[in-house]
Amino acid sequence: MSKSKSYQITLTGFWIFSMINVASFLSNRKWLPWSDWINSIYSPLYKLMFGG
């Protein structure tokens, strides 16, 4: 039962995550702007290391 439950949760969750990304791309909206988030975290660090 537990195996089946974790399987259903993982598969459903992964399908939802994938479909959000697909819908975001096809509708040309940035619902999950991964690159912007990564950039906002690491860009200041990079500037600190190399001065821009």
Binding site: K3, S6, I9, N21, V22, F25
Partner: peptide, 28 residues
């Protein structure tokens, strides 16, 4: 994903993973 789902194989995850990579590669 197979490890998280405790499944015996990963085939059910192939299609959503392919779609996700395609979508992400376009809107990153």
């Amino acid at each position: 994903l197979q490890h998280l789902s405790k499944s015996s194989n990963y085939h059910p995850f192939l299609l959503p993973a392919g779609l996700l990579i395609w979508a992400m590669s376009n809107h990153i």
